[in-house]
Amino acid sequence: MKRYILKRLVQAFVSLFAVTLIVFMLTQLSGDPALLMAPPDATPRDIQEMREIMGLTKPLHVQYGIFLADILSGEFGRSFKWDKPCIAIWLDRFPNTLLLAGASMVITIIIGLSFGILSAVHVGRWFDQFGKIFALMGQALPVFWLGLMLMYLFSVKLRWLPTSGMGSWEHLIMPAITLGWFFTASIARLTRSSMLDELDRDYIKMAKIKGVSRSGIILRHALKNATIPILTLGSLNFVFMLNGTVITETVFNWPGVGRLVVEAIFTRDFPLVQTTVLIGASFFIFVNLMVDVLYAYIDPRIRYQ
């Protein structure tokens, strides 16, 4: 087991190193920050001076070395636009994204699980059909459209909720629903299919013969066993949310990591783009590592392979 974990750790570090290289190269290819920051009146000499000040005239391998050194120092470099350590800027925004992702996750779990279980229990009946439509809509509706429609209905027409921004629990409702619906739909679909699988197994039939109550069979037996794939998907969904929910944060003007990365890309703030992408990639690599280790723990065949 130790050897397996060690091997996976080494693979994770190699992946992270590859990410630093890819992110660095892609940002370099994306354009000239000095040109975008300079006013239209700037002369080529002025723009060149800005490039020199920003360190963009150094050879690429030197710039990459500085980028790696900045990561190791824990500052992740200084933002061109904010003139602060990138990690400090990211940490300022991350709690906002965490709050939004957390609220969306609560919605996702409560509604997704409920719909999935009820659809499986009432398979083929009206609730199941409704659940299928709900799931289809959640995965088919574009997030920006859904967000704007919610805003139109609940803010512009009914005046129940504020359009955007952060401040009170009311500000959280629409962005959390907008972000959560897509993931709710996927959880509902997976819960339904897992529950149907479990409900068809022999141990469930045995439980029925032994006189276990219907709710006991569903909640204590079938749901417990159906939860493993749902937890895996839920964890990955949560990481997706933490990585910046670009569209939701933009539509609802939520000052999170998603908006930060979009602004950084538009201004070609290379250090900040690299930081947000690298941290996002680290989340995925870490969660995948944890899932792999857990699988190996649960299923010995994996570690022996």
Partner: peptide, 9 residues
């Protein structure tokens, strides 16, 4: 507020 439609709302 970067999004045009949000500003209009």
């Amino acid at each position: 507020v970067p999004e045009h439609s949000t500003r209009l709302a």
